[in-house]
Design a protein around this nucleic acid. Sequence first.
DNA 1: GATGAATGAGGGTTCATTCAT
DNA 2: AATGAATGAACCCTCATTCAT
Lengths: 197, 197, 197, 197
Amino acid sequence: MKKNRPKYKQIIDAAVIVIAENGYHNAQVSKIAKQARVADGTIYLYFNSKEDILISLFQEKMGQFIEKIEEEIAGKEKAEEKLYMLIEKHFMLLAEDHPLATVTQLELRQSNKELRLKINEVLKGYLHVVDSILQTGIETGEFDSKLDIRLARQMIFGTIDETVTTWVMNEHKYDLISLAPKVHQLLLTGCNGSQPA
Amino acid sequence: MKKNRPKYKQIIDAAVIVIAENGYHNAQVSKIAKQARVADGTIYLYFNSKEDILISLFQEKMGQFIEKIEEEIAGKEKAEEKLYMLIEKHFMLLAEDHPLATVTQLELRQSNKELRLKINEVLKGYLHVVDSILQTGIETGEFDSKLDIRLARQMIFGTIDETVTTWVMNEHKYDLISLAPKVHQLLLTGCNGSQPA
Amino acid sequence: MKKNRPKYKQIIDAAVIVIAENGYHNAQVSKIAKQARVADGTIYLYFNSKEDILISLFQEKMGQFIEKIEEEIAGKEKAEEKLYMLIEKHFMLLAEDHPLATVTQLELRQSNKELRLKINEVLKGYLHVVDSILQTGIETGEFDSKLDIRLARQMIFGTIDETVTTWVMNEHKYDLISLAPKVHQLLLTGCNGSQPA
Amino acid sequence: MKKNRPKYKQIIDAAVIVIAENGYHNAQVSKIAKQARVADGTIYLYFNSKEDILISLFQEKMGQFIEKIEEEIAGKEKAEEKLYMLIEKHFMLLAEDHPLATVTQLELRQSNKELRLKINEVLKGYLHVVDSILQTGIETGEFDSKLDIRLARQMIFGTIDETVTTWVMNEHKYDLISLAPKVHQLLLTGCNGSQPA
DNA sequence: GATGAATGAGGGTTCATTCAT
DNA sequence: AATGAATGAACCCTCATTCAT
């Protein structure tokens, strides 16, 4: 299995650094190879194409990302708490890895439509987590039973994503994690609907 | 003034179509010229560079976009109504111009960081409109006075944007405009906070 | 006759200035037109092509150049004096028109082989003047009767030309005209051969 | 070291041939690559730009040129003999490589001012050789002690250069080398001044 | 497995020239 | 005669990918 060989991760980590430092359009394969301390040709022993590196990067990183969030959420019972953990962990994981945040929020979005569709495939895992939180909330009666799950999911993802992107655009110059409570509050009331608290 | 000559708009409209059909990275200047029925060199009588076409495209289209929304909003008094018009008009304008929707939601985001920063400059006009709605709502007592305007703005823009992007990603195959009431409802309760209605 | 219409000279003078200021490769037709205060298209009422401007420029300027030198020389009897006037006048005419000097010594030499051959055609007029001086010198006994006229001519032209080019390369920062006596002395002894003075 | 790999010389030799055959302005990189039997991109593994090819070409060829002349001169004691060897070797080296002669005398002079300045840098090596001959001549008493070295150097270089250029312009149709004795004679008396031989 | 030299297709831009007004 | 907007051919360079070693 190629994914278990040390150079596989080595190349992906190199790609994150190179893209964060140089931008998507200046992240040539040869730069990634140099950063990973392998020969250009070696890249192609582990990946089929440059695009494959980027998809794998996203899968690998987003996979860990979702796993960690799921662990965090599993321990909570109420949807409200789960939502809070989702937001906080999301912010934390990106706040502690600036290059990754830059790559996922800005650089990887410069890829072509085809690649973005594949990335969206990976994102579905994240959206399932959001859905399950909403489902829990409806079952526990925390959320309005008439809540449109698809729209609520778009609101939650859209708001969190926009918040992180704005933070990255502002060059990480304020504290992202401390925004979690307010974002949580905003989204929560959105999901509550007009029902009494 | 170059912007008033017919070929200026002709080229921008051609650019929207070519980018929508071929994707950002396959939108060669020569293709845009052919679509606009002008010679390649003519492009450079109206624009300084390919990037300049894209920035102008965004400014031109987004400028009209914001203008139309502002007209719509001006007639309403309550923040709630203004917010509704913002969402509905936003959806309508993009629903009636699929190529433009594809270009603004997917393709133009593939541009490099520098171009994206310029695009953000243009977007500020939109965000000001959102801010003024929020301000109105706080003044009329419709919204929670402790509302964090920056976060609320990010929620509103993030949600609307994500909703449109998802619709585009799904190849416009369901009706976007009819989502307006529910999105409105979601965002409204988010802004209301826990105060009684 | 096109050459007598005022715009003809106007364009040629503009060309000299534009080439001197911008260099041969940055002397676009549109720049020359702007400098001459005519429309781009007007150029082509007076010249067949850009190359034609350059050839005409050289013919016009070099024609006057040779005329002036011939006038100066006609008044002298001895070859030695004629040679001195040739050198001094050559230096003077270029020293008093720096843009022309830059254009003829540096910029016009960047033209293609074909143009250079045409320029050489024009130069023949100058070389005939040199030849006639040499002829005079041989007839008066001032110069060695076994002198190879072609080589002597190349020495005279080559030395004068190289001296001017070096002066232009050094940005005209020393006095060219005052070099005339020494250059004259050098060339004269070269022509004298080993015969007693 | 790139300069020692076989393709480096291969490309430079191809450039000489392509420029000689097509002229400076028709010597596209792709033509040079084809002549050198390498891919276009390979050129850029050895040179930074097209201009870099030309500078390297001149340095490489002129470097060998000067070296060979120096070897020849070192064996002679009298300035007169050294001068003769300079002229003869200069003529010989160009007479036996027509493409190189065409390139150095005609084509490379069409380059822009910046490139020409770099070429002049290389030419200084040649001029130093001329200077050292003049110095020798003054020390041995062969040349007039009041000789202006700068002007004499310009005469020598200008005469030789003009002689070669004229020969190239006439498509090498007469024998260049056999002109050496007469050119030598001309330049020698120029340097002798009026002193007795 | 690993290397890195070699490949070659692809595109934004310039500018001499034309021609309808 | 004069204009200047429009034309479109031409070219240097980059970089993802390959393959002989």
